[in-house]
């Protein structure tokens, strides 16, 4: 074990890292309340909600309301599909079957291919097929190639630690496969399923590289932000950043709170080990 001095040093490093991680985000949070004459940096020139009001004036920036609705709808679709598809595939992968290796490596490949290439490939495919790209078709698929590998990896992590004797007990008591899934497996893995949902939502809500060439005529919020970074030089950009961060925190916080309450109502919350919501890659 490291000595006292080393422990303090490492603690200091960790503290500095947290500052490094949060400092900038907190700064733009503060700066988005800049007064109407304020600039992109300190000092604050008064405090106001001016830039938030600007956000909702169509002439200042694009139609942000529509972009926000589109982004949330897309994130909801991606989240639901990611949960269902990775849950199904995760169940299948509990046993080896012919072709399981190939599907596994294909899924990993999906994680490794750079986002912009997926975007370009799908864009070209739709272009050559003369299909109209749209957020609910091409962008939806493009995002799934990113969220599904994460979902599947989380399922792997869960089932590698899953105690099969619960299912055997259910079967011995005469449960059908569906009953044992519905009443035994699903309740045990529920927290991880919520984790997959949160992952899917976060990845989708913030994605821009994969939607760049696949969103068609209707921009999503991250694409609006990407466009604004080169054209907008007022704190309205910070206001948009703050709003986007707030929405994503509200949804995620709400989900975690919901699970907590649900778990409490059911009595003992089944905590599957190693599956805290929001546990990123490598689960």
């Amino acid at each position: 074990m490291p000595g006292r001095a080393a422990r303090i040093l490492l603690g200091g490093l960790f503290g500095l890292f947290l500052l490094f991680l949060y400092g900038p985000t907190i700064t733009i949070g503060i700066l988005s309340f800049q007064g109407p004459d304020g600039g992109l940096t300190f000092p604050m020139n008064g405090a106001s909600l001016h830039w938030f009001a600007q956000l909702f004036q169509p002439q200042a920036v694009g139609d942000l309301g529509a972009a926000m609705r589109r982004t949330l709808a897309l994130a909801a679709m991606v989240t639901a599909s990611t949960v269902v598809i990775s849950l199904l595939a995760g169940m299948a992968f509990r046993r080896r079957f012919r072709g399981s290796g190939a599907v596994f490596y294909l899924t990993i490949a999906s994680l490794i291919v750079p986002s912009i290439l997926v975007s370009l490939g799908i864009g070209l495919l739709f272009n050559q097929m003369e299909w109209e790209p749209a957020w609910y078709s091409s962008a939806f698929g493009a995002q799934l190639t990113w969220t599904l590998p994460f979902g599947l990896l989380i399922m792997f992590a869960v089932f590698n630690r899953f105690d099969r004797s619960w299912e055997e007990a259910a079967r011995d008591m005469g449960a059908t496969p569906w009953q044992s899934f519905r009443h035994v497996v699903l309740p045990i893995i529920a927290p991880s399923v919520v984790g997959i949902a949160l992952f899917g939502f976060t990845l989708s809500f913030d994605e821009f590289a994969r939607t760049l060439l696949t969103a068609g005529s209707g921009n999503t919020l991250p694409l609006e932000i990407l466009g604004m970074t080169t054209t907008v030089t007022t704190p309205v950009l910070y206001a948009l950043g703050t709003v986007s961060t707030a929405v994503s925190f509200l949804v995620i916080g709400g989900a975690i709170l919901g699970v907590r309450l649900l778990g409490r109502r059911r009595g003992a919350a089944p905590e599957a080990r190693g599956s805290a919501p929001g546990t990123p890659p490598g689960g």
Partner: peptide
Amino acid sequence: PFWTSNLIRMIAWVPF
């Protein structure tokens, strides 16, 4: 911070 947009986290360096 993983829950926030990468773009916003980049922009956040500008005032710094």
